[in-house]
Design a protein around this nucleic acid. Structure first.
Length: 329
DNA sequence: AAATACAGCAACCGCTGTTAG
DNA sequence: TCTAACAGCGGTTGCTGTATT
């Protein structure tokens, strides 16, 4: 339309808001209410454009804004809604009381998106992609040895598996492994999206769905409850493949049907009579949680933030006394 | 201790849809 | 019906604090 931004007007301030400006804006809105943003700055004695005032109010000063760290439930909700709605941040924010679209967008880009990529999940399609994984680091994991690798060959792209085997059998240093992998990665990151969605590295998720439906957690790491079964046979999948929200082929459809009914959808931390979140967000005791970094100790590294973010009451587990960590090693 | 890199987030930009005159 | 202003949205930028070298 070619309209120049209102802030182009001379004399209007830009950049971070001061406490004084915040106070003026808050006081004015408390008296007159929000709206009429064009005339508001002048009436409130602010050298700002109306748009800037509106953004400051809606994203920061509004009294109903919930500040601070996102809860585990909120993060799950964001991930699930994003899998259905995409980057419709306002639509996602509408289902997270107290959170703004800007805040959710920032949180997605700075936290969730990176973790999905790290864990081999395409943040756009929400599907597992081995070509996004740091495979060499997985191979260093004590719970993912060569014999395990060979036993999952029916589940992964043979080409990737062959490469992983090569890396695992190599006696060279870790750095050399990484370089070897990078040089031989058959599915580089710069493929176009259509190729990505059809790449054979996509895990046939329905094949492993059943294995992920019953999970236990131990030492911060998820394991299926048949990890060590009666036959003493170890489960052969690495933890990152046991995330049932990731690999459940139906979860997107589930939430789509829920979300499509706008009048009845509510996030799990509100009255959830209209939506059984348990059907969408599996509880940790029965299964893994979606995209949970604490379940992804692929290379034994995680951040304090990630650990802390999952340490709330919503994340308690029952660990059978008979289960010992050594059993998994 | 200083320089550099990185992460997180508030704020801005530019576009689109809606509304009022 | 047209036009301009408003309101809202998603993408991007740039500042600030922290971590690393």
């Amino acid at each position: 339309m070619g309209r120049s931004p209102c802030c182009d007007k001379a004399g209007l301030k830009k950049g971070p808001w001061t406490q004084e400006e915040d106070a003026k804006l808050t006081q004015y809105i408390q008296i007159h209410g929000p709206g009429n943003w064009r005339t508001l700055p002048k009436n409130a004695g602010l050298q700002r454009c109306g748009k800037s005032c509106r953004l400051r109010w809606t994203n920061y000063l509004r009294p109903d804004i919930k500040r601070g760290r996102f809860s585990f439930e909120e993060e799950e909700t964001i991930i699930q809604l994003h899998s259905v709605l995409g980057n419709k941040w306002s639509a996602i924010a509408a289902r997270l009381p107290g959170r703004t679209d800007n805040e959710i967008k920032n949180y997605w880009n700075t936290h969730i998106r990176k973790r999905l990529l790290k864990n081999g999940i395409d943040p756009v399609t929400h599907r597992p992609r081995l070509d996004l994984l740091d495979l060499s680091s997985i191979l260093q994991s004590a719970s993912f040895n060569l014999s395990n690798l060979l036993n999952i060959q029916t589940l992964v792209n043979p080409q990737v598996l062959r490469l992983a085997t090569l890396l695992a059998s190599s006696s060279s240093s870790n750095q050399e492994n990484k370089e070897l992998f990078l040089n031989n990665n058959p599915y580089p990151m710069n493929q176009n999206s259509s190729e990505q969605t059809t790449t054979p590295s996509l895990i046939p998720t329905d094949q492993i769905w059943n294995q992920a439906t019953h999970m236990q957690v131990n030492n911060g790491q998820y394991f299926p409850d048949n990890l060590v079964n009666l036959n003493g046979q170890e489960n052969l999948l690495p933890p990152y493949l046991m995330d049932n929200s990731i690999i459940n082929p139906n979860y997107s459809e589930q939430i789509t049907s829920q979300v499509s009914d706008n009048s009845s959808f509510h996030p799990s931390n509100s009255d959830n009579n209209n939506l059984d979140m348990g059907s969408i967000f599996p509880t940790p005791i029965s299964s893994s949680t979606p995209l949970d970094s604490s379940s992804m100790f692929i290379n034994g590294s995680t951040t304090e933030d990630e650990i802390e973010s999952y340490s709330g009451n919503n994340f308690s587990f029952e660990i059978p006394e008979s289960l010992e960590f050594d059993d998994f090693m």
